[in-house]
Simulated scan of single mutants.
Amino acid sequence: MKIRLVNNGMFTPIEDIADTLIPSPEGFYWIDADVEDLAVLQPLFHMHDLAVEDCLTEEEQRPKIEIYESHYFIVINSIRFDDEEIFLRALNIFLGRHYIITVTKQKINELRSLKPILWEQEVSRPDYFLYNLVDIVVDNYFLVADRIDTRIETLEEDILMHTKKSHLNEIIGLRGEILWLKKVLGPQKDVIATLNKRDLKLIDDQLQKYFSDIYENAVKIAETFDTFRELMGNLREAYQSSISARANEIMRVFTAMTTIFMPLTFITGIYGMNFDFIPGLHMRGGSYILLGIMLALGFGMFFIFRKKDWL
């Protein structure tokens, strides 16, 4: 657990957590905690039992905001895209009048990238801290969306150029992750809408207007992933069409080969019959002549098929 006094974007480490119980004349306290620290934090800051239980038991929480008498409990999901997989990390936030507590189970990059922004904007209020944190989390969804878009384009090119059976597994896997992520985007968008429109006493009225910009971005992200879902459907159709076209191409080649060998099989069938009187049967060099005719016939049909673009 790390405790800092944040004033004008400057961080001052605090050793004794008891000091955070009294509001600072300037700035606010930021407590960056793990779930194990809740046993200490809950009685000090009167955290609601249900909020603490959510932090402890829920691995992947649904984004939400709960209003309590002395604090707000907010859950938003940070996003990562590693090794072609999408990961969500629950970010639990307890917002008080003179403090903000962030509780996570895993390391979240947004908390580290937030520090220079707080320093640049000289942040001295916990609600402004919350605004910048939510803004960074939402912006990262755009970065992930760009990577997913690139992945879809690459997959589409691979399918059109050389279709493989593994492409279907990639399509199904990526489509499932997009659908799963889309279910999260709806509640998260609602949370941001609440921060934007609802009268919340712990958030400055002027600041709520800035949440409208984040809400617009959240709407754009939701629409982007709606588009991704449609693209994955089109990609699956393209895969199936490519497989069908490939099968038709193979069948066309086999059909042409069968057609070429049909007259050759007919000739060999005639001269393989047990009759004494077959034209040219006892002719000197007749076998070579027959082989020449068969080769000429086979190559002739082959070139005709190539000219008509049947092969």
Rank of each mutant, 00 (worst) to 15 (best):
276 D>W: 05
251 M>K: 01
213 D>W: 02
267 I>C: 03
244 S>N: 12
283 M>W: 13
276 D>E: 15
274 N>A: 05
234 N>Q: 10
215 Y>N: 01
218 A>V: 00
211 F>G: 02
238 A>L: 15
251 M>E: 05
279 P>C: 10
274 N>E: 12
209 K>D: 13
271 Y>A: 08
253 V>T: 13
216 E>H: 12
247 A>C: 05
268 T>I: 12
289 I>V: 15
238 A>Q: 10
263 P>V: 08
248 N>F: 09
283 M>Y: 13
220 K>Y: 07
285 G>L: 02
252 R>Y: 05
227 T>S: 15
214 I>P: 04
239 Y>K: 03
288 Y>R: 11
274 N>K: 11
279 P>Y: 06
275 F>W: 09
229 R>V: 08
211 F>K: 02
268 T>L: 10
226 D>R: 03
231 L>I: 13
235 L>R: 03
250 I>A: 05
249 E>K: 06
210 Y>L: 05
285 G>K: 02
252 R>M: 14
207 L>F: 04
258 T>L: 10
208 Q>F: 04
245 A>G: 11
214 I>H: 01
210 Y>D: 09
267 I>K: 04
280 G>V: 03
212 S>G: 12
233 G>A: 12
253 V>G: 04
261 F>Y: 08
227 T>V: 12
230 E>V: 07
208 Q>A: 11
250 I>G: 02
238 A>T: 15
253 V>I: 15
231 L>Y: 10
268 T>C: 08
264 L>R: 01
240 Q>N: 12
249 E>G: 06
238 A>F: 01
239 Y>D: 02
239 Y>T: 01
212 S>Q: 13
222 A>L: 12
284 R>V: 11
269 G>F: 09
281 L>G: 03
230 E>M: 08
276 D>P: 04
